[in-house]
Design a protein around this nucleic acid. Structure first.
Lengths: 240, 240
DNA sequence: GTCGATATACTTGTATACAAGTATAATAGT
DNA sequence: ACTATTATACTTGTATACAAGTATATCGAC
């Protein structure tokens, strides 16, 4: 149909994955960004012709998005549910739940290797900012938190992470792209916040961890605000 | 191939669902029960011919099982991971995490309707026991916990539940079938435990809730024990 | 006998074809 | 003009076909 050629989800992020997974990432990001508005009814055939693939990978993508509650698979077509402000709060409820649980485990194990890894990621983030690469920054940001969660070797906590990660990833990506243009100072605040995370893990001081989580949550509220602005702009852009 | 006709997962439970989802339930239960041993390599073609369907629904099923960490999708074939004792502990970590979170929300809302629903389910469970229907009992047991979780209207907590539910369901189903034969008394203990849940919700007394969760956890450890026995028996049965 | 290359029989990923069902629109009857 | 019915153009779910890649096994050279 419209044969949209520009992908807003970084293609290299989905390099190894199958077409279905890549399409899920692209459609997910478009929905979260507001490019695809909620209420829209997605048909497998239309998506297939739009992305110039067959229905097989499209089906795979829709199944993934449905499992994330981003769309709802119905008898006729998949209706776009999108994210409400409520949803975003809820995602962070879960993230807080997970990270709190993870930290309780972390204080019981040796974290020297973890701290090394996190320090490396943090430096990568610094470089990403230096070169104004919002995508790379987002990637490392997500990786940072994933690394922490992975460190406790808990497959079911990891499973929860894997189910919430994609949405988080898109949220962060869109937010960071936005901020790179308009709120450049935010990045230094985010870096500081991550330093606190590392410090909390190094010292195993719960008070510091709580501080880190709270700061992160505050950053997030900013992110959410940005996102709505972003959606607003996109909508206006389309209607222009 | 072997064209196994007997399904160990109650067919009526998957009545409305697509073939792929039903197959996922069946294969999941077989893996958890030990009928399909860990390490086995499942091929889409073999499964398709065994269940006498095409590869499409099989692919769907395998995707689902992979998202639950029960199998691992690799280049050549899907290798059965199964559940370790560790995994089962971890599932209950998550369930404890969720139910604790849910309870913190529940104490803030009106629960009269919820208590009514739970009481109904509890009576259903009593009837199920009376007629020695382990499957129905399991169904209501899972529904009981799902009803509690659903009551707080938190879509992302619900998402986590939806991802852990299938495994829980199979675990409970297999365990209950086992107990019906050998440890009939356990059922009254489980019923008592559920009464405590209801009481905790009605009175909004955290201490009682903790008691309920602990009792449930103790019941679970029994379940796990049963399961290993069950696997043992099945293995011996096959080798006989 | 041992090592290496090729051939074959698998595997998955994607595309296409077909069947069953549903909503919409157009048409016929009143 | 309005209602009921039929036709059609969609939808998804499943089956099949094809392409690309991988492990294994067989066969040949040394």
């Amino acid at each position: 149909m419209s044969k949209t050629k520009e992908f807003i989800y970084p293609p290299k992020w989905g390099a190894g994955a199958s077409t279905g997974v890549r399409l899920a990432c692209e459609v997910r990001t478009r929905i979260i960004s507001g490019m695809i508005t909620k209420g829209t009814i997605l048909s497998e055939n239309k998506l297939a012709s739009e992305f110039e693939v067959s229905r097989s990978p499209i089906r795979e993508a829709l199944k993934i998005l449905a499992s994330e509650n981003i769309i709802r698979l119905e008898r006729m077509g998949a209706v776009v549910v999108g994210l409400t402000e409520q949803d975003i709060k809820e995602i962070y409820d879960v993230r807080l739940l997970i990270e709190t649980f993870v930290y309780e485990r972390i204080v019981k194990i040796d974290t020297s290797e973890l701290v090394r890894e996190l320090s490396k990621i943090l430096e990568m983030m610094e470089v990403a900012i230096k070169y104004k690469d919002a995508d790379e920054f987002s990637y490392q940001d997500v990786l940072f938190h994933e690394t922490i969660i992975r460190s406790i070797n808990h497959s079911y906590i990891m499973l929860i992470w894997n189910n919430t990660k994609p949405v988080m990833e898109s949220l962060i990506l869109l937010s960071m792209r936005m901020r790179l243009e308009e709120k450049y100072d935010d990045f230094t605040r985010i870096l500081k916040n991550h330093e606190v995370y590392i410090k909390a893990i190094k010292t195993k001081d719960r008070a510091i961890m709580i501080q880190a989580l709270h700061q992160n949550f505050d950053n997030v509220q900013g992110e959410v605000g940005d996102l709505w602005m972003s959606q607003q702009m996109l909508t206006e852009g389309r209607e222009r």
